[in-house]
Design a protein around this nucleic acid. Structure first.
Length: 499
RNA sequence: GCCCCUAUCGUCUAGUGGCCCAGGACGUGGCCCUCUCAAGGCCAAAACCGGGGUUCGAGUCCCCGUAGGGGCACCA
């Protein structure tokens, strides 16, 4: 395939979500695969809804995912500027060109009139379209009124008979009757172009060869083709990507969705503790297939395997369980130092000050039992907190009395005390005597180790016991065991406690 | 109301007329491993929306239903 020029053209309104991320990724993948360019263009012509924060967030999210663009507002490029508000005059000139060629006209209808018209159409169950009042105006008169400063918009003059056929790469030909295509506004009365004009002009001027966009654009797709054809330009290859549906399947995901604790926002996912590799892999697979091999796929593999022919046109429900699975996969592939580094901000956010060295020693023992980076806090936060001093009820294991537990604790402490400081660094040196103890006591390993686990970590769920003890250290381990012993001894005289 | 799109296991998907009594992954269930939790290994259940065509032959092409989704702004 020859090098493509593709573009991601978000409008900086709310939070950047995974649907946009996937569109950006497919653009990126095809650009890298073919040796083409990936362009970032900010569609900010709606000055009412844009926010600078949204633009910053979107760029940060793209960076986090590793989807670097070749041309864009920050890096520049041969077709600068890459921000639509800065291109206002370009669109205006093109709109005028359309008026001159008879493909567009000025409309002086006030918003109030349009509103009334729509209300009436709703009542009479007529199609919701502009009624064409200004279309019938004498062009010379319209020009004069505009010159006199009368506020107006510029509308596209859609043919009122015949049909228009457009071609979507995933769906084939789509034919619609021209009377069903509205005379859409191209330029607002504030002089800013709307998407319909601005995007078409930019895509042409910037030499875009393939357009990936959401299937929400299918409705106005014929209009866009008509506009391009009115200019006599060549159309890009159109690829309308399916939308993401909520996990329930009821409706598409929306920027206003805050329903679940799972996030549909890219940066939200990051803060939840997901890895960019996992997020990339996850969203790539919703709406496309990348061959028979098993995941996880690296970005290079995604680039290599991406194909327009393996995109699916149907809407996909987002499945967060699969994200969890992918995240676990990638988490386990990380080197311990890498894991330590990635998990550090989460500890800090939890108010803990993790020692770098300690973090690196903990990494390998939590690696295969956390799903998100944030899970590390629940699993290993105790390493960075003072001894937790669990109550007797926590310490007691199933089928064990307090008295039995005291004995087990005493003997465990004795066994561990017999291990020298030097040997304590090896978890096998701890495991052997404790297993022998389990044997002697005639109890189950799960019972004794469970007791020790709670005594040492304060948790019923923790990393492996012996490795944990090694990291906690000889002195602390013995102290915690001792404390638990006292706790149980007090409980033993009060028979009321049961598990 | 009008226009458009889509339709394979619960979910994401493979399948581009015979290789499909439909393959993979997530999830689910069972077993193994096991100091908790995981991870890992093995096994299992689970789908071509319905009806008509076309064809020697249809999950694959066409039509009609049905269901789901999207759009109908001086938003993108």
């Amino acid at each position: 395939m020859k090098p493509v020029r593709v573009r991601m053209a978000p409008s900086p309104t709310g939070h950047f979500h995974i649907g946009g991320a996937r569109t950006a990724m497919y653009n990126f993948l095809l650009a890298r695969q073919t040796g083409g360019q990936f362009i970032l263009r900010i569609e900010d012509t709606d000055r009412k809804r844009n926010t600078p924060e949204a633009q910053a967030e979107l760029m940060e999210a793209l960076h986090w995912l590793g989807l670097q663009w070749d041309e864009g507002p920050d890096v520049g490029g041969p077709h600068a500027p890459y921000t639509q508000t800065a291109r206002k005059d370009i669109y205006l000139a093109h709109a005028q060109q359309l008026i001159a060629s008879g493909h567009a006209y000025r409309c002086f209808c006030a918003p109030e009139r349009l509103q009334r018209m729509r209300a009436e159409q709703l009542r009479s169950r007529a199609p919701l379209q502009y009624d064409g009042l200004c279309r019938r105006l004498d062009p010379a008169e319209a020009t004069a009124r505009a010159a006199a400063g009368e506020p107006h918009t510029i509308r596209f003059m859609t043919p009122d008979t015949g049909t228009t056929t457009v071609h979507d790469y995933l769906r084939g030909d789509i034919t619609v009757e021209n009377r069903n295509i509205d005379d859409y506004i191209l330029v607002k009365s504030d002089g800013f172009a709307l998407y319909h004009l601005a995007a078409m002009v930019d895509d042409h001027l910037m030499g875009i060869s393939h357009v990936f966009r959401s299937s929400e654009w299918l409705g106005t797709f014929p209009l866009h083709a008509l506009i391009i054809r009115a200019f006599g330009w060549q159309e890009p290859v159109w690829v309308h990507l399916s939308v993401f549906l909520k996990p329930t399947g009821k409706g598409k995901m929306s920027k206003r969705d805050v329903t679940s604790e799972q996030s549909i926002f890219v940066l939200g996912l990051r803060d939840l503790g997901y890895l960019p590799e996992a997020v990339n892999n996850w969203i790539a697979l919703m709406g496309a297939s990348f061959g028979p091999e098993e995941t996880p796929l690296t970005m290079d593999e995604l680039i290599e395997r991406f194909s327009l022919d393996h995109l699916t046109p149907a809407a996909a429900r987002v499945n967060f369980e699969k994200l969890d699975h992918f995240n676990g996969l990638y988490l386990r592939k990380l080197s311990p130092p890498d894991l330590a580094q990635r998990v550090r901000p989460f500890f800090e956010r939890a108010g803990l000050a993790p020692d770098e060295d300690l973090l690196r020693r903990i990494a390998p023992i939590i690696q295969e039992r956390i799903v998100t980076l944030d899970d590390a806090i629940d699993m290993a936060g105790f390493f960075f907190r003072p001894a937790s001093r669990p109550p007797a009820a926590e310490l007691l294991q199933k089928g064990m009395t307090a008295a039995q537990s005291v004995v087990a604790l005493e003997q465990a402490r004795a066994a561990l005390a017999a291990v020298s400081e030097a040997e304590f660094g090896d978890h096998a040196a701890l495991e052997a005597p404790l297993r022998a103890l389990v044997e002697r006591l005639g109890l189950k390993a799960g019972q004794v180790f469970g007791l020790l686990r709670v005594a040492v970590t304060g948790q019923r769920v923790s990393p492996p016991l012996f490795e944990t003890m090694v990291i906690v250290g000889r002195e602390q381990t013995l102290a915690r065991l001792h404390w638990a012993e006292g706790q149980l001894r007090a409980a033993a005289v009060q028979p009321a406690i049961d598990t």
